[in-house]
Design a protein around this nucleic acid. Sequence first.
DNA 1: CTCAAAATGATAGACGTCTATCAAAAAATG
DNA 2: CATTTTTTGATAGACGTCTATCATTTTGAG
Lengths: 354, 354
Amino acid sequence: MVKPTLMDVAAAAGVSYATADRVLNRRGGVAEKSVLRVLAAIEQLGYTRDVTAANLARGRSYNYAFLIPAQAGTFFGEMRAAVKAEAKARASQRINIMIEEVPAFNSDGLAEVLESCIDRDLSGICLVAIDSPRVRKAIQALRAKDVFVLTLVADTQSDSRDAYIGLDNLAAGRTAGRVLSLASRDGGVVLPIAGSLDATDHALRFKGFKQAITFDATVLPVIESFDRPENVADAVRSTLEAHPNLTGIYSIGSGQNGLFAALKEVQKSVTYQLPVVVLHDLVGSVRTALAIGLVDAVIDQKPDQQIARALDAMKALSDGETLPPDFGTIVPSLYFQDNMPSAPADGPEKGPSL
Amino acid sequence: MVKPTLMDVAAAAGVSYATADRVLNRRGGVAEKSVLRVLAAIEQLGYTRDVTAANLARGRSYNYAFLIPAQAGTFFGEMRAAVKAEAKARASQRINIMIEEVPAFNSDGLAEVLESCIDRDLSGICLVAIDSPRVRKAIQALRAKDVFVLTLVADTQSDSRDAYIGLDNLAAGRTAGRVLSLASRDGGVVLPIAGSLDATDHALRFKGFKQAITFDATVLPVIESFDRPENVADAVRSTLEAHPNLTGIYSIGSGQNGLFAALKEVQKSVTYQLPVVVLHDLVGSVRTALAIGLVDAVIDQKPDQQIARALDAMKALSDGETLPPDFGTIVPSLYFQDNMPSAPADGPEKGPSL
DNA sequence: CTCAAAATGATAGACGTCTATCAAAAAATG
DNA sequence: CATTTTTTGATAGACGTCTATCATTTTGAG
């Protein structure tokens, strides 16, 4: 009934501890038949190595670094908070997590930090990728030194990192389209607003969005705001003038403040009706806007879950496990006012140390 | 830079290891000033006890039992699978998880199993509660023996268990209402179907549903199916005859097969249009129905996440931590065809054992 | 059969903590 | 001051594993 130890395995296999250990840790120099007997004993007893004892003996601890873009909107702020929370929660399990601030939207800055990580004895790094030759090279150098590299939120080429944890942007766009479809079953006019269609994530979301718009409605040409609030506000205003019957808006990117400003005007006006609005990332002002009914639905990519996933992935990789194919795919969550999760939920609090 | 050990703390405090240990583990018999010095050293060095080493030394392992109702629909099947997956994943961390089958809807059967658990050296039990004096008494007996008792999916009185992990049913109902509201902005007729309004979860969902129906629509009287498929099918058919313009259906409980049968008839007919259908729990046939467009939205309570949460909660409690107030509240997820997560997603697979 | 090579056994010290015991030192008591 | 009590120190063995070393046995080749 007690969990078997390697000693038990050795006894069951009729070999010494040393031999069992040689098999388990692939040290070689063991006769074929002994290997088989040990493996059979492992199988039969259902032995699993006590990883915690092993790590203790090895003096091993897991050192991971997260490179999170500085500010760049509250989204990464939430991410950073989530990393901190996880760091605290796993500190007693020999898992050390370091957070590095990285200049936003700056591939050279990112590369610099990456390069500085090379001799820091890390077992894994998590970063929000910005593609550039220098970044790619830095990543390669790290992986050559057996550092696992995961991308978060934004990906690089799939062969140059160990895993990608991030939102399924196509599904996200389709979900948005579905909401607007439901809300305008008998036709209407919908306006998509992106940051820039050159960004792959925005492009994917837009693609999914168009796929899911099944009803007989007009999809206006997508507006690219380049994340400037004024652009968004102006676009909404002029669209409403041209199409007073606007039924839906899908805001693909960030820079929501311009949108909110315009929507507030609409809310006060008597001429127009509030369209159904779908946007991304349940953070700060978006949360408020949803709560007061200024917008209708928010698609969230669950930053806390993402970093938990990322850590699980890195730990698994460090332990020599392999990840299932779509382990990193984050399915978008859809929130209304009604099922909005409460704000900052950290993990369990430390009580008196036992 | 290395993580400090208790030895380091002792040295920094200018006391022996033994004294530091006495303070850390509250063994008593230590002079006030020494206590303070040790605590200061802990603070200053940022010492955290290596829980894994401590557990190793204590020979401690976490033994948890999950009492999952036998069959009773695929939902609990998914739950059981999720428990198994977690059990496997945490086996190497000295966490043993046992699954006990419990007869469904049978408080005496549940009580019996609970009573048999009393001398099994468990540190925690997770059960789907069915309220009855005998069950309550069994729970009390367990808690008196320092076994943590968590309820899952269905709760008992809040003072008779350590935590409840489960869906926010009010929010779930509101979410359903919101979807139908969006889909029928200019009026319509919606039909709610419950299993039984005596079940608190169904009643709560229905309450939330009514709250969220804001548009100018007729909410037909709720139908209680008592989980018999024929009842559901009949109700849908007769409702459609009386209200050919039926715009929405909210199926509050389980027993969806009758619903699907009726909807398939509608799909083939030329007389009626498919209403917008919202239901619960993304499992088996529901998943298929969503995929083929027979229904529109599914509210899921994420069984896998629930059991992960439950385990985290039990582990935290075992380690003497306290849970934040709404730790167990599961926010409902809303899935369309478009953001439906892929089916059974287990954790990372074991590769060659390192 | 002999001898080297290969395989196995035995065992010790480490990792950080727990638990326990015994002796020594310091403080409080009269 | 002598005696008790309280507080401290020192240390050993355990937990399950890793790593390493050295001695012994078994195997295979000549």
